[in-house]
Design a protein around this nucleic acid. Structure first.
Lengths: 177, 177
DNA sequence: CGATCGGTTGATATGAATCAACGTGCGTGG
DNA sequence: CCACGCACGTTGATTCATATCAACCGATCG
């Protein structure tokens, strides 16, 4: 579990490309489902300084049998993960570059806002263009172009690790699934 | 649960596009995780004649508490689903058209072979080009072109609901993750 | 017999990748 | 303290993969 900081879960492809599966925020398990797997098929990398804590899988599994609350919590975590993952498939399969990035931002905004108060529509977002690219299947060059566009059109500005959302409506309009 | 026949799980996007998340074979749950969700966010459609049977979610959940075998089976099903889903994300995010289709074929071949004896490397595969397109994020026109290429190169031939695999090695070579 | 559906093929358009150059800020070592 | 190298972002030119548009064909079905 990631206790504090930012990280991401990803896989490295044979040709060196990297696909980011999920950004991890404080309180997130690296992967809920991996509680039930003995071998992980992903890697995790920190984006900021982090604090993590670990649990033996077998212990969690064991506790699940006796504890309905825990079992239900684990299940809900898996479901949330699965829902996001399913949405990501649709985004990668069917959306344009602008839509992909809009979706990523909306998704992260929701998760960040669930953890902290947002002032002035400014969301902490310690990502390089390359991370965004690896998350939504684009090139960092193209991410840069799209972000320039968003900036020009007065939609969002990402800079210095902060995402400033100027026109949420426009962003949601682009991101319509 | 799909007891017999072929089906697929998908979502319909706002612009009418369709993203297929998973093809369902006999014995598959529509979605393992949906045991723990009360609202489904996907649709299912049959590809062939099918037989299905249903269970009340609450009953399954209830049985899980007492029955380690069932709980473990459900967990394994969720894990398998999650693993395939994660792989699909990498494929959609980072692979070319040929690689996407090769992956889909290899993935389905594996699942089909787990259920029935394969003779002459001929796999039953009742998909239209449009289904392949909707599964891997391409156009049916482009799927047609890629399949022509595969045919010319003597790799696989898909026709009349049967996938004939002529050169598995070549297919695996293309599909390398 | 005509209509519809699925597949093929060709011409063209377009979105994103690639290649390349440049600027800027920053850390590091001299 | 300076100079250099490096990571990151930006921008322009060009290429490439895939989409789009359109025509055609064969099979199937009412």
């Amino acid at each position: 579990m990631l206790c504090a900081g930012w990280a991401f879960r990803y896989v490295q492809l044979a040709d060196g490309a990297r696909q980011i599966q999920r950004f991890l925020l404080d309180g997130d398990l690296f992967s809920s489902l991996s509680i039930f797997e003995d071998a992980s098929h992903f890697s995790v990398k920190a984006l900021t300084d982090v604090r993590i804590c670990g649990f033996p899988r077998s212990e969690i599994r064991e506790k699940c049998y006796g504890d309905r609350g825990l079992q239900s919590a684990v299940a809900q975590s898996c479901v949330a993960d699965g829902r996001d993952t399913a949405k990501l498939i649709a985004v990668l399969g069917r959306c344009s570059a602008e839509q992909r990035i809009a979706h990523l931002f909306l998704h992260l905004m929701e998760r960040i806002a669930a953890r902290q108060v947002i002032r002035d529509r400014r969301y902490p977002l310690p990502l390089r263009h390359q991370h965004i690219a690896d998350a939504v299947g684009l090139t960092s060059v193209h991410v840069s172009r799209v972000l320039s566009l968003f900036r020009e059109r007065g939609i969002v500005v990402l800079s210095e690790g902060v995402l400033e959302v100027i026109d949420v409506r426009a962003l949601e309009g682009i991101g319509l699934l």
